[in-house]
C-alpha cells in the first residue's frame, strides 16, 4: 500500500517516469498477471533491483494473498498457471514458425534480357518490408518496392537481376535468419507478349 500513497498528492508539474517491464511491457507490478512472471522477475532483478526487492519480497506476496479468500486464491492460481502455459506455448509456436519459414529470392524474367528480383517471406522473421525495401534500394542503387501479391501477402520487388547479391546481403545483415532458410529460385514464368 505504501506505493499507492506516493502516487497521491498534488499533481506534479512534470510527467511521471514510469518503468515498464522489458519482457511483457506492462508496469512491473502487473507482471504477475502477464503469464511470463518468471522471466519478468529475472528482468526486473537485473535492471531495477530496488523495485524487484519491493515487488517480490515475501511481505508483498503475503499482503497480496491475504486480500483474497482461499477459494478465490486457488482459482486465480489455476488461471495464472493456464495463462503461463498459454503464453509459453504461443512463444514456442512463434519461434517454430520463425525457424521454419523460408525466405525466397526469385529471379523473374521481365523482358527477355531484363529481370526483377522478388523477395518473399521476410516478414515472418519480424522485419518490416517497407524499411527493408528501402535498404535494398539504397544498397544496390536500384528501384525497390513492396508489392502486394495476388494471393494476399506482400513481397519486395527489386529491379534488376540481383538474386545472388541479395542473398549475400540478407545473410550478412539479418543474422537472425538461418542461412539454410534462404533460397534462390529462378522463376520461369513468362509474362504474356514480352
Amino acid at each position: 500500500m505504501a506505493d499507492v500513497a506516493t502516487a497521491a498528492g498534488p499533481p506534479e508539474p512534470q510527467a511521471k517516469q514510469v518503468v515498464y517491464c522489458g519482457v511483457c511491457s506492462l508496469p512491473p507490478e502487473y507482471c504477475e498477471f502477464g503469464g511470463t512472471v518468471k522471466k519478468c522477475e529475472e528482468w526486473l532483478k537485473s535492471h531495477h533491483p530496488d523495485m524487484h526487492e519491493r515487488l517480490y519480497s515475501q511481505d508483498t506476496i503475503n499482503a497480496n494473498m491475504s486480500t483474497l479468500t482461499l477459494e478465490a486464491q486457488k482459482r486465480a492460481d489455476k488461471d495464472a498457471q493456464k495463462k503461463a502455459a498459454k503464453a509459453s506455448a504461443a512463444e514456442a509456436r512463434a519461434q517454430e514458425i520463425k525457424a521454419s519459414s523460408k525466405v525466397l529470392i526469385k529471379r523473374v524474367e521481365r523482358n527477355k534480357r531484363k529481370y526483377v528480383t522478388a523477395v518473399q517471406g521476410l516478414e515472418a522473421h519480424g522485419l518490416e518490408l517497407k524499411k527493408v525495401a528501402k535498404d535494398f534500394g539504397k544498397k544496390f542503387a536500384t528501384g525497390s518496392s513492396v508489392t502486394k501479391l495476388p494471393g494476399g501477402g506482400e513481397e519486395i520487388t527489386v529491379q534488376g537481376d540481383l538474386s545472388d547479391d541479395i542473398y549475400d546481403y540478407v545473410v550478412e545483415t539479418y543474422k537472425d535468419i538461418p542461412e539454410d532458410n534462404i533460397e534462390c529460385i529462378e522463376d520461369k514464368k513468362k509474362k504474356g507478349g514480352g
Binding site: M1, V4, P27, E29, T67
Partner: peptide, 8 residues
C-alpha cells in the same frame, strides 16, 4: 487496482 500504483 488495489495495491497497485498504476492504472490498468
Amino acid at each position: 487496482a488495489e495495491g497497485k500504483e498504476h492504472a490498468c
